[in-house]
Design a protein around this nucleic acid. Sequence first.
DNA 1: CCCTGATTCGC
DNA 2: GCGAATCAGG
Length: 172
Amino acid sequence: MNWTDERVELLRKLWSEGLSASQIAAQLGGVSRNAVIGKVHRLKLSGRGRATATPSRQKKSVQGSTVQKSVSRAASTARHITTSIGATALQAQFDAVPVTRHYVRPVENVVVPISRHLQLVELTERTCKWPNGDPLSEEFHFCGNDAAETGPYCKYHARIAFQPASERRRSR
DNA sequence: CCCTGATTCGC
DNA sequence: GCGAATCAGG
């Protein structure tokens, strides 16, 4: 998979909307979350409101030569600028969302990997039973992606259904 | 153990 | 430029 303009654009959109790298990777398809993160960095849009501000990383020392003693990395110099603007913007966004009165706004638009749009009768023990759309509508269908034996949902919908926590506590 | 993003570095 | 491996952390 190569990064076409459309894919990059979608990446930008989803990233700015606050989706995690793995979720974005799932929607793009054909790429790992690492690929997404790598691309995000190359596009210079890593700071997204308040994802993770992990300052310095070192990794293991690979080369026997060049044993840096006084590690004065340029990265740390360019990194200590607090992104107060991004944090503020994100805060305002969260405050605004719950107030908006939605008429028929189902669970849609969240993550939805690649729904197979199955009808009720098409579900099996291994298909994700996450409902999409209004059950009273003709548009109603199920996710239908492969679900583990351990639950009724696929990997992504199970995450949504059981622990929205990781989305919340962000203050690294 | 699940997940998150960040960084490095061989390709 | 790309992304797997790795790291650091919730």
